[in-house]
Simulated scan of single mutants.
Amino acid sequence: MSEVKEVFKQMEERFDADAASGVDEIFQFDIDDEYWHAIVSDGKCEIVESEHDDPSVTLSMDAETLQEVMSGETDGMQAFMAGRIKATGNMMLATQLTNLFPVA
């Protein structure tokens, strides 16, 4: 299993349905040459290995940054400010990711 696939598997396991109440958004992740998206709707989360046609926000980063942010080793906002994460679309949604997928 690829490192990226493992990170998304962990994200699915850590998903906080309570934090997702009222959220109906699609988070696109462009990780190196892999494309993933998380559909968060009605307190549920589905993570799919593919590119979405109309994501709410798209986050681009390398696999190392994804791993560091999702493990809590690196703060997502700091990584964004340092240019390690690029965001397009509704950038405010990116700030919700730490609530939706809390670090273990």
Results as ranks from 00 to 15, higher is better:
1 M>D: 10
3 E>R: 15
5 K>A: 10
6 E>P: 02
6 E>Q: 14
8 F>R: 11
8 F>I: 12
8 F>H: 06
10 Q>K: 12
12 E>A: 15
12 E>D: 12
12 E>L: 14
13 E>F: 00
13 E>C: 00
14 R>L: 06
15 F>C: 08
18 D>C: 10
18 D>M: 15
20 A>Q: 09
20 A>W: 10
23 V>G: 08
23 V>S: 13
23 V>Y: 14
24 D>P: 10
24 D>Y: 09
25 E>W: 12
26 I>E: 02
26 I>H: 04
26 I>N: 03
26 I>C: 03
27 F>N: 10
27 F>K: 14
28 Q>H: 13
29 F>R: 05
30 D>Q: 12
33 D>S: 07
33 D>H: 05
34 E>D: 12
34 E>P: 03
34 E>Q: 14
37 H>R: 08
41 S>Q: 12
42 D>A: 13
44 K>D: 09
45 C>V: 14
47 I>P: 03
48 V>E: 01
49 E>C: 05
49 E>D: 01
50 S>C: 01
52 H>K: 07
52 H>R: 08
54 D>E: 15
55 P>A: 08
56 S>N: 10
57 V>S: 07
57 V>L: 00
58 T>V: 01
58 T>P: 02
59 L>G: 10
60 S>M: 08
62 D>W: 03
64 E>I: 09
64 E>R: 15
65 T>R: 03
69 V>D: 07
71 S>E: 07
71 S>V: 05
73 E>C: 01
73 E>K: 14
76 G>R: 06
78 Q>H: 11
78 Q>R: 14
78 Q>M: 15
80 F>W: 07
84 R>P: 02
84 R>Y: 10
85 I>A: 02
85 I>R: 00
85 I>F: 01
86 K>C: 06
86 K>M: 13
86 K>A: 14
89 G>Q: 09
89 G>S: 07
89 G>M: 08
91 M>Q: 04
92 M>D: 10
92 M>G: 06
94 A>S: 13
96 Q>V: 11
98 T>H: 01
98 T>F: 02
98 T>V: 06
102 P>M: 10
104 A>G: 04
